[in-house]
Amino acid sequence: MAKPKLKEHRIERDWCKGCGVCVHFCPKKVLEMDESEKAVAVRPEDCIACKLCEYRCPDLAIEVITES
């Protein structure tokens, strides 16, 4: 089975509470907090679409969309 390829990170900014869980545990350091303490994908090209950020977000605020 081919590895899933990233299309985009969909981040619900109104739901994100800036806990930093997704940023800290991303194995590829793809995400960062912006000046309003919301998560953003700053290096999407490094993303391996493991979805750990999506699974660990306590606010259901991040979704990793892959190409099907």
Binding site: E12, D14, C19, G20, R56, C57, P58, D59, L60
Partner: peptide, 20 residues
């Protein structure tokens, strides 16, 4: 949503993965 739990509260992660 956004839900009432504090930033970083583990209960949201339980919700997330229970739904999965």
């Amino acid at each position: 949503f956004p839900h009432m739990w504090c930033p970083g509260c583990g209960h949201g992660i339980v919700l997330n993965n229970m739904l999965r």
